[in-house]
Simulated scan of single mutants.
Amino acid sequence: MARFHQLRVAAVDRLTDDSVALTFEVPESLREEFRHAPGQHLALRRPADDGEIRRTYSICSPAPGPEGPRTLRVGVRLVEGGSFSTYALKEIAVGDTLEIMTPAGRFILEPAPGLYAAAVVGGSGITPVLSIAATLLAREPHARFCLIRSDRTAASTMFLDEVADLKDRYPDRFQLVTVLSREEQQAGLDSGRLDQERLTTLLPALLPVDEVAGWYLCGPFGLVQEAERTLRALGVRRARIHEEIFHVDDGAAPARPAPALAHSTVTAQLDGRSGTWPVDDGESLLETVLRNRPDAPYACKGGVCGTCRAFLVSGEVRMDRNFALEPEETDAGYVLACQSHPATETVELDFDR
């Protein structure tokens, strides 16, 4: 069960003009709870006038050893009008304490001998992939990783030093390709967007596409969609493609309004306890549960992070949008509670499964 804990800020490192890395100290008593797989994320929260603000940020530090993590590091990029990202860049200082949820997320790679993995990332999408690549290369001496990253300009590129360090440490096993969309490079690829046409030419020229065991796509919605279409057209099985989207513009991917159903109830199993409550008109199932169980897990409420994933035990639901669950998860019966509305008079969810 995900829980919030107070963690002290150990470092605030400026990465670019509009991004920072925050490092948190993890006391020995919490190291087991904050153990994470490479690629997982943390939800951060702070009080607000109308309750609280929660935002999800991926862990960029490598996965810990048996002793658990002594520190956790996340990358935060400023979002225009973003209340939490503005707070992170302008106010958070060393010594502050923040409320941090224990790690969550399934955009992960489990290191394996000889594994060949690749990633296509844009902007702050480098954050979880940095943890994935660093963990894999350190733990498996014969594994390889190819990183194709797209950024606007060199000055806007997050974690430049960390990626360069991976290249220096693993020159024969870490392949790096950088594309700038708004700035010409002295060497390397021409500037421009990584769209499907360009990726279709680029990927087979860089690496043997059919030998890559896992593809990790992370960044803006448009880039992730273009990369997925490219890989599918190149014959990559969907099971080998893993996606994480940090932000979705409403205009780019409109939500489907869920049909209203009067007199519905939801039963939810949460942290070993169960309850049944009526669903108010227009409410998502998460909103209904939160009215009665404020400890229900959530972060973005936008169908992106997957923190509110629950197993649909019985009944039917309509999901407005889903950018977090893999097809095999939805096929297995999992839904996003923040995007789900009842399509039958009774619905039962299990957040513990």
Rank of each mutant, 00 (worst) to 15 (best):
R273T: 15
L270S: 08
P208H: 15
T201G: 10
E244W: 04
L203V: 07
A233N: 14
C305D: 12
E328C: 09
F107I: 14
T127V: 15
A10S: 04
P66Q: 14
E283G: 07
L89W: 09
A48V: 09
K301E: 14
V79K: 07
R353K: 04
D295S: 07
E183K: 09
L325H: 04
R182G: 08
S83F: 09
Y57P: 08
R169D: 11
G302T: 01
A2H: 13
G51K: 11
T153M: 07
P278M: 11
S181Q: 02
R3P: 02
L137H: 01
A21S: 13
S83N: 05
G51H: 15
S61N: 12
M158F: 12
E52V: 12
R70H: 14
V279M: 11
E183Y: 13
E283F: 07
R106V: 09
C146V: 12
A260P: 03
L349I: 13
W215F: 12
R291E: 14
V12T: 06
E197W: 02
E329A: 09
L89I: 15
S264K: 10
S124C: 12
V224A: 06
P103V: 08
V212A: 10
L78V: 13
L137A: 05
G315D: 13
E184R: 00
T127N: 07
H242N: 07
E244V: 01
V335W: 01
E329P: 01
S58Q: 07
S284D: 10
R8Y: 11
E52G: 15
P62A: 00
P342L: 06
V248P: 00
R173E: 12
S314C: 01
W215E: 10
E243Y: 07
A133Q: 03
D165A: 13
R46W: 03
